[in-house]
Structure formats: C-alpha cells, structure tokens
Computed example of a mutant assay.
Amino acid sequence: MIRVVIAEDQKMLLGAFSSLIAFETDIEVVGEAQDGQKAWELIVEKIPDVCILDIEMPHMTGLELARKIKEEQIPSKVMIVTTFSRVGYLQKAIDSDVTGYLLKDEPIDYLIDSIRKVAAGEKVVSRDLAATLFMKVENPLNDREIDVLRLVREGLTTSEITRRLFLTKGTVRNYLSSSIQKLQVESRQQAVNKANENGWLE
C-alpha cells in the first residue's frame, strides 16, 4: 500500500484529490493539510511514502517543505503539484530532490500513475514542463537584492524597507538599481515581476 499525505490550500481541490485517490486499491491517503505547517506535522507523524504538495501554501510553501524533508532526511518522496510552469520553480524543485513535478491540469489518471512511479523511485515531470528542464536560468541577484525585492512585492515603500532591513535609503536605492540593471528591466515593479516569474523570490 502506498501511503500518501496531500497538502493543498484550496479545500475543494484537496477534497477532489483525496476522493479520486480513494478509488485506488493500492494507494491510501493518510493525511490532508491546507497549509505548510500542518503538512509538516503530518509528514513527521505519518512518514508517508509520497507527499503531494502544492507549491504555494500559507506558513510554508511546497518547496520549503521539500527542502525541510531533505534536510531532516525523512524518506518520503515528494511530488509538487502546481499551476505554475516557471523555470525557476522547477529548478528549485530539482535542487530540493523533488521526485515529481506536475501541473494541476493533468488528467487524474496521470496523477495516479505518477504517484505509483514516484513511490517506486522514478522521476516524473509533466510533459508540458519537460522542455523547461533544458532552460535553466541562473539567478543573478544576491541575497540582499532578493530581500529588498520581496519587500517591494509586499508593497513596502523605500522608507519602510530601510526600517525593516536596518539599511539607509541610499543603500536600498542601490540594491534596487542593481536589481533593475541585472534583470534588464526599467522599474522596480518590473524587477519584482521578472524575479517572481522565475521563482527567485521564494
């Protein structure tokens, strides 16, 4: 029996996944969670064979969970299920030893088959994502530039960022300017958008 924990912040989708998997005689859902922290507690308690994780959840993302599972040497295999086909996300998933990376619009039969393959140690990537494996884009931003862009994404002003990061206004402006230059865009918002699309702000 393949034991599975599912983490998905959309209640309807979580219920649909569980209900459909329940029809399979060789797969059992041993836990469900709507946020990353609850998912982590379930994974530690149940030690499932496969963890099916949404990439964006409250408290802890699917990728953060995958890294935590790897760091704590929990033997569970990880499948990321997402609506996002961003190259950066996929690369981070690969770096975190994620075994499966599927788009949510895949047929349910494909998901079920993928659970079995992942449990058996195979790697599975949605067909529409296969090409992105050869499109790795290196993140040109340093840690401080990422910190500043994350706060811009949250809607903070330059003054608010200076207080949050204990930096001067000039330093914050320099980080924003270098980010804009590195990403070859024209504004801080465009820099946030481009970095976000590539999964560099996660």
Rank of each mutant, 00 (worst) to 15 (best):
V98K: 00
V125R: 00
A119E: 09
F166Y: 07
I146Q: 10
I52D: 00
I27H: 07
K182M: 12
T157F: 10
V125Y: 00
V137H: 12
I80D: 02
F23E: 12
V78Y: 00
F23A: 12
L102C: 08
I52R: 01
Q91F: 06
Q10Y: 15
P48V: 10
I146M: 05
R86L: 09
R164V: 08
I21E: 06
L42F: 05
S159E: 15
I69K: 06
T82V: 04
Q181R: 15
V5I: 14
D35L: 02
R116A: 11
R173N: 15
I21L: 11
W40R: 11
D128H: 10
E32F: 01
L201H: 09
A131Q: 14
D147C: 08
I180Q: 04
Y101V: 08
E24Q: 14
I161Q: 02
E24L: 00
S114T: 11
I146N: 04
V118F: 07
V124Q: 05
D54M: 05
E138N: 11
F166T: 12
V29E: 00
E160L: 13
A131F: 13
T83R: 10
G121F: 08
E197D: 13
V5D: 04
I180D: 03
L167F: 11
G88P: 07
R127V: 12
V137K: 15
N193H: 11
F17A: 01
M79V: 04
E41Y: 06
N142G: 09
T171G: 10
L133R: 15
I180H: 08
Q184C: 11
D113G: 15
D97I: 05
V5W: 01
L20H: 03
I43D: 02
V44P: 00
E41R: 03
V152S: 03
L42D: 03
E41H: 06
K123Q: 10
N198V: 03
A22Q: 09
T162W: 04
M57D: 06
T168D: 13
